[in-house]
Computed example of a mutant assay.
Amino acid sequence: MIPRVIATIDLAAIQHNLAQVRRYAPQSRVMAAIKAQAYGHGAVPVARALESTGVDAFAVACLEEAIQLRQAHIKTPIVLLEGILSAEEAVLAADEQFQIAVHDHWQLSLLEALPESAEVSIWFKLDSGMHRLGFPLNETASLVEILKRRPRWRFMGWMTHLACADELNNPATQQQIEKFNAALKGLPGARSIANSAGILAWPETHGDWVRPGLMIYGASPLPDRSAADLGLRAAMTLESRLIAIREYDAGEGIGYGQTYRCPERMSIGVVAVGYADGVPRILPNGTPVLVNDTLVPMAGRVSMDMITIDLRTVPNAKIGDTVRLWGEGLPAEVIAAHAGTLAYELFCGLTQRVQFVYKHF
């Protein structure tokens, strides 16, 4: 059976992108973000590819994601970025030796309720300006005192998250860096600030640990720099096939709402992919796809199972031809811009109907 929609994941590209992280931040250890199924690429195969290259740690959002990796025999240290959510999770996280990013006192209470003999590895997450999770910066000294009362706890360090690192002219990032560093002046512990945009654009954020996400998957987090410019290779290529080609006269409307009108007699192709596969319905007329290595525009609204495209520039197109939605030759960032979103959402939005194929390293 030939799949309708295939997401090909190039694991060698992911390894290459990790090498680029190390090139940009050669003095830092790397905590690769593989939460949300490795940004939609598949957490276990991505973790295996990165583990084989000696990545220093993995970052996931929650305990369920961490357990999935351990059950797949991933040995690399795993950090729970949102920490623990219950007393049960505190026990499991300690037993499995997951590192816990603690961001609030109620989480500390859960950990302090564990037996004195419990060996717990923790990070403290500080709020330097993202205003999402994290202890206030003026509490750092009191957090150190808590550590002194728990000698069996293993303190991994301090982390914060950048809110505007992709906006190079926004003063917020520099302000966050200065506030974070000032709050920790003279205090022990490793520092972790940089996300992908920080790694690429703000070298002063590199510190002891960097936490790349999007750049691991070969997409640029910077609006004015392409992935290729940054030395990154796309890890995901999403493709389907042409299943119909029809000729329509000038003025004929295409698809739901007939939002596209043929400007002349022309060929319209129908591709077997739609929003039920993860292609955003909001994509407008003119959004590019690749047919036989030629960029052609979408023509009409994205349907649940199909899109329609303008084939005037590929007169040799035929039924069964491959149509690339994003990937090599057509960056996901380009498609995301047409949808008014980010490549993250495209990657994470693929559904179970898409068949994943892995190119191994």
Rank of each mutant, 00 (worst) to 15 (best):
R312W: 02
T313A: 15
G320L: 11
V271E: 05
R241F: 06
R246D: 15
Y256D: 13
G340F: 12
L325P: 04
G327M: 10
V271K: 05
G327V: 03
P315C: 12
E333L: 04
S240P: 10
V314L: 08
A339D: 10
I245N: 01
D249E: 15
L238T: 00
W326D: 03
N316T: 12
P288I: 05
T322F: 01
P284F: 08
E239N: 08
A336C: 07
P284K: 03
V334R: 05
P315D: 10
N285T: 02
R241A: 12
Q258T: 04
V302D: 12
D293N: 13
H338M: 12
R324V: 08
M298D: 09
I245H: 01
V334A: 05
M266F: 09
P263D: 06
A317P: 10
D310V: 02
P263C: 12
I309T: 00
A272N: 14
A317I: 02
N292V: 02
I243P: 09
C262K: 06
S240Q: 07
Y248A: 11
L311I: 01
W326R: 02
D310N: 09
D305G: 08
R312N: 09
R241G: 03
P263K: 03
I268H: 04
T322D: 00
G300K: 02
I245M: 07
D310K: 00
I268R: 00
L242G: 07
A299V: 06
V334Q: 08
T259Q: 14
A250H: 11
M304C: 05
I243K: 07
L325E: 05
A336F: 03
T322N: 00
G320I: 04
I335M: 15
L283V: 04
R265C: 11
R281E: 14
V279Q: 08
I254P: 10
E264F: 14
D310F: 00
V323Y: 00
D321K: 01
T313D: 15
P331T: 00
T259R: 14
I254W: 11
E247P: 04
V279L: 15
L242R: 00
A336K: 01
D277L: 08
E247K: 12
K318C: 14
I268S: 07
P284Q: 05
C262E: 11
V323R: 00
D305Q: 11
T341F: 08
A244W: 04
T287H: 05
V302E: 05
I282V: 13
G340T: 04
D249M: 12
D310G: 01
L330D: 01
D277K: 02
E333C: 08
P263Y: 10
R324C: 13
T308F: 13
V289Q: 01
P315F: 06
N316V: 11
W326M: 07
N292A: 15
L311G: 01
I307N: 02
R265Q: 14
G300R: 01
P284W: 04
A276W: 09
A332Y: 04
S240T: 02
M236S: 07
E252A: 15
L238C: 07
R265V: 05
V273M: 14
T341S: 15
D293S: 12
L242N: 03
P331S: 06
L325V: 06
T259P: 11
I268G: 05
R281Y: 12
G251E: 13
A336R: 03
